[in-house]
Amino acid sequence: MEKQIETAKPVKPAIMTAKNVDVFYGKNQAIDNVTLDIPENQITALIGPSGCGKSTFLRCFNRMNDTIDICKVSGDIRFAGQDIYDPKVDVVALRARIGMVFQKANPFPKSIYDNVAYGPRIHDLAESKDELTEIVIKSLKRAGLYDEVADRLDDSGTSLSGGQQQRLCIARAIAVDPQIILMDEPCSALDPIATAIIEELMESMKERYTIVIVTHSMAQAARVSQKTGFFHLGKLIEHGDTDKIFTNPDNELTQNYISGRIG
């Protein structure tokens, strides 16, 4: 494992670093001593069999695990050099910088407009109504949804199709202009066409944003990501360039998983 850290030399500087992270749910350890860097403006995929702790690890980055009482996180996680568990850190600020998209699209039962405007409103990002509308439209465009909903921004967000809903959630996350977007199996509930649209979108988003995506689909990881981390039973078994992980993994477990023998 130590060796891997040396070999995985990120081309870009790491915007987020995790060192020796342990996560416990009560007495159950879900993450065991994981160390991983997230390079800026790239897509990092976290793969591994179900229940291996991918989501748990992802949720450490924006401290979403704080919302679960029994969940205890330890280790050193830094965003742009700042320890995110430092008492001086405001989770509100942290989550504004690090957005999240969930497995199941979860638009609020509000209008499309209000969904996207939610973040800018709570964070006071717009000075005027016009500015807010501008942000909403810009975000919808960046999420590749604007053309489909331009004439019905007042319709309920829940009236959209599954794929559209997920893109609405991406637009909602983008609206506060975060540095990083965490995506937890964003396409697992979508059909192949909707999935393809979102994968394309991610490709275009990586210029502005750093993306960490959890996926159970190795094909998806191979298609979209530049870096990949493979988790197994709470441990990070191997990580590095996606090309390498998928063509020439160092670890036998990784090899087995990639070739479909486990998971």
Partner: peptide
């Protein structure tokens, strides 16, 4: 460049209150 600081702001403190 985006603001990357995680420190609390006056607006956030108001919200926490």
């Amino acid at each position: 460049m985006r603001d990357l600081t995680l420190n609390t702001s006056a607006q956030m403190q108001k919200r926490h209150r």
